[in-house]
Computed example of a mutant assay.
Amino acid sequence: MSKKVDVLGIKFDHTTKTETVNTLKSLIKENKKTFIVTANPEIVMHAQRDPQYKKILQSADYIMPDGIGIVMGAKLLKNPLPERIPGFDLMKDLLNIANKEHYRVFFLGAREDVLNKAIANVNHEYPGIQIAGCHHGFFNENDPEIVDMVKGSNPDMVFVALGFPRQERWISQNSHLFEKGIFMGVGGSFDVLSGTVKRAPELWRKLNIEWLYRFIKQPQRWKRMAFLPLFILKVLRSRR
Rank of each mutant, 00 (worst) to 15 (best):
W170M: 00
I70C: 02
G67T: 08
F88I: 06
L177S: 08
A120G: 09
M225L: 14
E42L: 15
N208A: 06
I216H: 06
Y53W: 08
Q52W: 11
D66C: 05
L76D: 04
V197Y: 14
V37A: 06
M91C: 04
P201N: 00
G195H: 11
R166H: 12
R239H: 09
F215Y: 11
G128C: 08
I85D: 00
D93S: 14
K33T: 07
N22I: 08
S189C: 14
N79D: 15
R221W: 05
N31M: 10
S172C: 07
P219E: 02
M1Q: 07
S59M: 05
D61N: 15
P86T: 00
K198Q: 14
W204K: 08
G128L: 05
D61Q: 12
S172H: 13
R49E: 09
R224Y: 10
L162G: 03
V71Y: 03
A60M: 06
L177N: 10
G188L: 13
P80E: 04
H124R: 14
N208Q: 14
L207V: 08
G152I: 14
K117I: 04
E19W: 11
E202R: 11
V114R: 02
T34I: 15
V114T: 12
M72P: 03
G128P: 06
A118Q: 06
G137K: 03
G163S: 06
Y62D: 04
T15V: 15
K25H: 12
E112K: 12
T23C: 05
Q48I: 08
M91G: 01
F183G: 00
N142V: 05
D61H: 15
T34Y: 15
N99D: 14
A161Y: 03
V235C: 11
I129L: 07
G188N: 13
P229Q: 07
Q52H: 12
R169H: 05
V44H: 02
I97K: 03
R49Q: 07
